[in-house]
Design a protein around this nucleic acid. Structure first.
Length: 695
DNA sequence: ATAGGGTTAG
């Protein structure tokens, strides 16, 4: 304590407390300060409170109590408390201190620091209502010309998804500084205006590392991984140094593209330039290797990491599940628990999928039950979906259906999709029909018009609902992704979207597509008698199946890679059944090994077979064609609004089930129709396309 | 005495 006394008299109080100060030490220091009467000085008291609150969030309660007993805290003290709370897990408490500033008997008035921190608290709690109130106070107190407050407001509205408000704030700044410019770029990229984001980025007179990172991350987050990497290259040409934060976005782009070579290069860069191997960076590396098919390397990085958080463990567990290593996946899960890292809801999804791929039904069920029992995690839709999948793939279809029936919430497309998948494996057409019907029903409602919805609520000033919608969006990471396949040739990634004809070698690709089609036919593959399951789970509903992005990528692989080189494709969505079968055939006819990584797992095609075997087979004799037709139901008696669309609604339409292939018939099932009518089947062309029926 | 923008797992 004598050394402490010395410190107190000689140094500013701020040096007394740091991040490693324990509660006990804190109490001792506090006692000494009281004895010395040092805390009577409001200035020093403020410093003491600030150092406690800011250094260690665990001590926040201590500083809260300290302040309760103080009658005349300074504005600095209050600001420090608001600042400490906006970073904490209890950001809403900032407002208590804001209120105390306003109610202060010493005529305190909030300043630019107050609002800077307060705005960030609003961003934390995602309360648009509070945000608007605070914004109003900012204007009232005249701090809207403070650049810190400006960037704070943009950041806050961006967090809540109110892009319009971001623009309003930004447009009113006469000369926005670098930080505000970066904030608006990030906001635009985050909410779908990526072209505008790039325009604003290009117009920036000066761009620092964070500005580059924001734009690269923006591309990576909305699925434009190719552009993210291009921009990264440009950044290096301009001589901007990369740090560990920006590298994470680059790795994320490599992951999504399946660009293993570039990912390896990034790893080498990290080591050569001695970037700090943070948990986040290490996790991004693991995820990259796992999803680019090099699970060994992923494990190696994992083993080398000193610090591992729940993201790290989940990435590696998920990687093992994706690669079909179910047992190993469960081993790691058990190690994770031993290491004292608490699994979260995402971890359980990976664990359940691990159980599913190796058919460990009992174990999976136990883990599912432990979620609630041990970890107090309420299973969500996704977990029930995994459970349906677990039972379904193991052939326990009734139990799978029971899971759906017993779900405490309305089953989603994923759950019915999992059941349908199981029904096709085990050829249960009856249950399959039920599942298909439910799927179509749900699909029609699944328009994902979140933004629209929240704007409607905002217009009617229902802020709570806006907040709800935004939270759901944030939680679910709602993003619209076009179907896209990538292939790396000589270290360069070529990306193909659905029906994409933009590649410089597209003429050759098209020729190869024709060649594939010709040789498949020669080998007896006749598309129009082959089953086509229209995969309505995914968003690819383009007309010509032959223009699916993975087929274009495979065709490009065939023309650009040497005979002995395996073709490795990465797709951002799930591979549809038709492409799956065609790829199997190609692997045989062209004598090529083809690996396709889709959204869920790896498919290794060789000699006409796929490694996912039982899990990918489907009904061959009973052909099901699911044809989803969007059509507008004619408004039956809409005389009041002549010709308006108001009474029309998008409705699920028709499921066509083809039975007995040689002379196929079509079962037409209307949604909600109990008696299907039979029609003779017209010549079904190989391209099953969307049809717009009028009923 | 105190500030701001970019990052990871389903």
């Amino acid at each position: 304590m004598s050394s402490l006394r010395c410190t107190i008299t000689k140094n500013p109080i701020i040096f007394l407390v740091d991040t490693s100060t324990t509660l006990n030490q804190l109490k001792q220091i506090h006692t000494q300060l009281l004895i010395n009467g040092i805390l009577n000085d409001p200035h020093l008291f403020g410093q003491f409170v600030a150092s406690i609150a800011l250094n260690n969030p665990i001590n926040l309660t201590y500083s809260n109590r300290l302040l309760d007993h103080c009658h005349n805290p300074t504005l600095f003290t209050f600001n420090s408390m608001i600042r400490a709370h906006c970073k904490s897990s209890t950001p809403h408490k900032s407002f208590e201190f804001y209120k105390r500033i306003l109610a202060s008997t010493h005529r305190l008035s909030p300043d630019n620091y107050t609002f800077n921190f307060l705005v960030r608290s609003c961003a934390q709690i995602l309360s648009l209502e509070s945000g608007m109130l605070v914004h109003g106070s900012v204007l009232k107190h005249g701090f809207d010309s403070d650049p810190h407050v400006q960037s704070g407001l943009i950041f806050m509205y961006a967090e809540m998804g109110c892009l319009d408000s971001c623009h309003k704030v930004f447009d009113q700044i006469p000369v926005p500084d670098l930080v505000c410019q970066t904030a608006i770029v990030s906001a635009c990229a985050k909410w779908g205006e990526v072209v505008l984001a790039r325009k604003l980025f290009d117009e920036m007179p000066v761009r620092d590392l964070i500005a580059w990172s924001a734009m690269i991350a923006g591309y990576a987050q909305c699925g434009l991984s190719r552009k993210a990497l291009d921009l990264f290259n440009l950044m290096q040409i301009e001589g901007v140094k990369v740090n560990e934060v920006s590298m994470v976005s680059v790795l994320s782009a490599c992951t999504h593209l399946g660009a293993l070579d570039q990912g390896r290069w990034a790893h080498a860069y990290i080591e050569k330039n001695r970037l700090k191997m943070t948990v986040t960076l290490g996790t991004a590396l693991i995820d990259m290797y796992a999803k680019c098919g090099d699970m060994n390397k992923a494990m190696e990085v994992f083993r080398c990491m000193r610090e591992r958080n729940v993201y790290t463990w989940t990435s590696v567990i998920n990687g093992l599940a994706m690669n079909g290593a179910g047992k190993k996946c469960l081993e790691l899960f058990s190690m994770m628990k031993q290491a004292g890292v608490r699994p979260n809801e995402v971890t359980f999804i990976s664990v359940l999928r691990g159980c599913s791929v190796v058919g460990l039904v009992e174990e999976g069920r136990e883990h599912f039950d432990s979620m609630r029992r041990v970890y107090r995690i309420e299973p969500q839709l996704e977990h029930y979906g995994c459970l349906v999948d677990l039972y379904g793939r193991a052939g326990h279809l009734d139990e799978a259906l029971n899971v759906i029936d017993d779900m405490p919430m309305k089953p989603h497309a994923g759950a019915w999709g999992a059941l349908l998948n199981a029904c096709t494996i085990y050829k249960n057409t009856e249950m399959g029909e039920l599942a298909s019907r439910k799927l179509v029903e749900l699909e029609a409602k699944n328009h994902g018009a979140y933004v629209l919805l929240s704007n409607i609520y905002a217009d009617s000033k229902e802020w709570d609902k806006v907040t709800d919608v935004r939270q759901v969006m944030k939680a679910k990471g709602v993003k619209k992704l076009p179907g896209c396949s990538a292939i790396e040739v000589d270290g360069e990634v070529h990306e193909f979207f659905v029906g994409d004809e933009s590649h410089p070698r597209y003429n050759e690709i098209e020729f190869m597509l024709g060649e594939i089609s010709r040789r498949l036919k020669l080998a007896g593959y006749v598309a129009n008698t082959k089953p086509v399951l229209f995969d309505i789970e995914e968003e690819e509903k383009e007309d010509a199946l032959c223009k699916h992005s993975e087929k274009i990528a495979i065709a490009f692989g065939l023309i650009s890679l040497k005979q002995h080189q395996p073709i490795s494709i990465v797709k951002n969505l799930r591979v549809c059944w038709d492409c799956h079968d065609v790829t199997m055939m190609i692997s045989k006819i062209f004598d090529r090994e083809i690996t396709v990584r889709d959204r869920n797992r790896f498919h290794h095609f060789k000699d006409g077979q796929c490694s996912c075997k039982g899990y990918c087979t489907r009904i061959r004799d009973t052909i099901m064609i699911l044809l989803v037709c969007s059509f507008k139901k004619q408004s039956s008696s809409s005389s009041s609004n002549s010709g308006s669309d108001e009474n029309s609604s998008e409705k699920p339409a028709i499921i066509l089930k083809v039975v007995d292939p040689p002379e196929p018939k079509i079962v037409v099932i209307m949604a909600g129709d109990e008696k299907p009518s039979f029609l003779a089947m017209p010549a079904v062309s190989s391209t099953i396309c969307r049809c717009d029926h009028q009923v």
